[in-house]
């Protein structure tokens, strides 16, 4: 997965206020303008028959997208499920800033890595709760 694609994924999976909080702790404050959106629409979600077969349309989900331009013309794009305009704008802004070598590392260290770590923690906690409901059939075997 490319860095840009990974950043987009981590930022989209994280709640908007958490992204805002991580961004605000950085001392990057570039001038930028929105060149598209933020705007809310829908994505049509596709499934596969039997999980692996031919595609079919399951239904739609809300989706917000934004594109920003920094003063030097660097473009950034962001997409996120739901209707949070600021969230999409921040993803686009991080995408634009990360294309600047002087900001890329601090964005990775200050935003992406902590957000990724927090998501991993949450997923781990959820997996532990699920694991406690795992069925142990061996307890049903008698005298063997």
């Amino acid at each position: 997965m490319t860095d840009a694609r990974r950043r987009q994924r981590i930022l989209a999976l994280s709640p908007g206020d958490r992204v805002e909080e991580a961004w605000s702790r950085l001392d990057i404050a570039p001038h930028y303008r929105c060149v598209r959106g933020p705007e809310t629409g829908m994505a049509m979600v596709r499934g596969r028959m039997g999980g692996t077969g031919k595609a079919f349309h399951l239904g739609e989900m809300t989706l917000t997208r934004a594109s920003v331009a920094l003063e030097d013309g660097t473009l950034g794009h962001g997409w996120v499920k739901g209707r949070d305009h600021r969230h999409a704008e921040l993803i686009a802004l991080v995408d634009a800033c990360a294309q600047h070598a002087e900001w890329e590392a601090s964005l990775e260290e200050g935003v992406i890595a902590p957000l990724a770590a927090r998501l991993a923690e949450e997923h781990e906690a959820q997996a532990e709760v699920a694991a406690a409901t795992r069925v142990d059939f061996f307890t049903m075997v008698r005298g063997e």
């Binding site: 049509m44 989706l63 699920a130």
Partner: peptide
């Protein structure tokens, strides 16, 4: 829903990669 434009189509979901909360089979035990 009818008030919103469609912006994109998804890649078909890969449910094999689901973060599982529940998963049972009444046909296979193990």
């Amino acid at each position: 829903r009818t008030t919103l434009p469609r912006l994109a189509e998804s890649v078909p979901l890969d449910t094999a990669l689901m973060r599982i909360e529940r998963r049972i089979s009444a046909a296979y035990k193990d």
